[in-house]
Amino acid sequence: MAGARAVPRALSGRGPDRFLWALDKMATGMEWLQRNSRRNRPPIAAVDRDIPLEVAEVRAEADDVVSLRLVGEGLLPAWQPGAHLDVVLPSGRTRQYSLCGEPGDRRYYRVAVRRLADGAGGSREVHDELRPGSRITARGPRNAFPFITAERYLFIAGGIGITPILPMVRTAAARGADWRFVYTGRSRESMPFLDELAELDPERVWVRPDTEFGIPASGAELLEHAPPGAAVYCCGPIPMITGVRLDLPGSTADSLHWERFSAPPIIDGEPFTVELARTGRTVEVPADRTALEAITEVLPQVSYSCRQGFCGTCHVRVLDGAVDHRARAADDHMAICVSRSAGRVVLDL
């Protein structure tokens, strides 16, 4: 889970290559708007509690996707659609997973994880090592993708992006709102929770696998389903979100709220060195990677959440060296998910 944003229609148009970056900038309008949208967003509230959980069920939901049913001692803390857990795996790795169960049922939490063969190891650990009876620790829940009250909604999900969207759809239906849901993916076999969508109003749900249409859907095609004045909630791959942002002004929708599961591209990055004072380790950060990515290879327990520079979870105290601040942080702290250094920086890790 990465960051989320809400953009009014008049301001809208959310891959680490320059083409996608250019599209992202075009959709956002200009760098000023991007900076100010982060400045105006309230920080994600810190939740300083560890919740011991046990894996009650591991269920295959699609190709390379499993869901985990997590239980604790008694009722679990309440949550709202869009919320996620910081899950501390047995290895010490910390990963963020959107809650995708029933918000009103506090007897359990449910998350779903797609296996990423070339990822940093968290998804492989979930798939290969967690079994019923496994114990983990969670922090939260907390919400970086809040679900607003509206009369009309369009929900758009791509693949595993259905995880925060599904509870929103159920909540909108329970409230009696006018809603539509478009669900895309590579193929039906890769798309989790199709069986649960069958329980919803079929007139309001459109399942659109790429294999059945030949090409991915454009933003305009997805937005065709929006009721007039709808709040659009979108979660999935960067190209899909970017297409929706670009085409929103030509639609009947009113606002766009989105969440993506990947970090923004690194532009004009230079390599630098990070010294970890507590552990005595030295980490080299290449031009095309973040300090967070490099540090978590040697310290997988380092906490982070949005990977966009606005939540503050990954802020680390700077003991020496200059920081190129690319996020709001105290002068003596570094947001290691996006900020960089001109040469060398010593961190309190």
Rank of each mutant, 00 (worst) to 15 (best):
S339C: 09
I238L: 13
V345R: 06
D320W: 02
V283W: 03
P300R: 05
R59F: 07
D324T: 05
E129R: 15
G243I: 04
Y109N: 07
A173F: 00
R317I: 01
D105T: 07
V71Q: 06
G13C: 03
L222N: 03
I215H: 14
P228M: 01
R188T: 13
I336M: 11
V7Y: 10
L194T: 11
Y153P: 10
E212I: 09
R39E: 01
R5V: 14
V318I: 05
F155N: 00
A10N: 11
R115S: 07
F19C: 02
S37T: 09
V244K: 04
D348I: 06
T290I: 07
V88G: 07
Q96G: 12
A112I: 01
V126C: 11
L292T: 04
D201H: 05
S67A: 14
V244Q: 04
A291G: 11
L23N: 00
I165T: 14
F272Q: 10
E196A: 09
E203N: 07
V323Y: 01
E199I: 03
G280M: 04
C337P: 00
A22S: 11
T137G: 01
T211K: 02
E293M: 12
A46N: 04
G185F: 04
I165Q: 14
L76I: 06
D195Y: 00
M30G: 13
R142P: 02
D128W: 02
L222T: 01
L319A: 06
I51G: 04
G15V: 13
V182G: 02
P8S: 14
A291Q: 06
V87F: 05
A150C: 13
R107Q: 14
G161Y: 06
A329N: 06
L256F: 15
G3C: 13
S91K: 04
G3A: 14
S218K: 03
N40H: 13
H225L: 01
A322K: 10
D48Q: 15
G280T: 03
W79A: 08
D201I: 12
A291C: 10
A60N: 10
V244M: 04
Y153H: 12
V316S: 02
A22V: 03
T242R: 14
V55R: 03
H315Q: 14
Y233P: 09
A172T: 01
G185D: 10
D50P: 00
V318D: 05
T282D: 07
G250C: 11
T273K: 12
E125D: 09
R317P: 03
R307K: 12
D331H: 06
L53A: 05
G3W: 15
S12N: 11
A56M: 08
S91H: 01
P228Q: 00
P146F: 10
V302G: 00
I136Y: 03
D105K: 10
L53R: 00
S91A: 03
E151G: 13
G13F: 06
K25V: 15
G104K: 05
L276V: 01
G82W: 04
R18N: 10
M240E: 07
M334D: 06
L99P: 12
A335Y: 04
E31G: 00
L197T: 01
A220H: 11
L99A: 13
A56Y: 11
A220M: 00
L319Y: 02
L33A: 15
P192A: 08
D331A: 15
D201F: 08
P192Y: 01
E125I: 07
S134F: 09
V66I: 15
H315D: 12
A10Q: 14
V207L: 04
R41S: 11
R180T: 09
T242C: 12
R139C: 10
E275P: 05
E151I: 03
A220K: 09
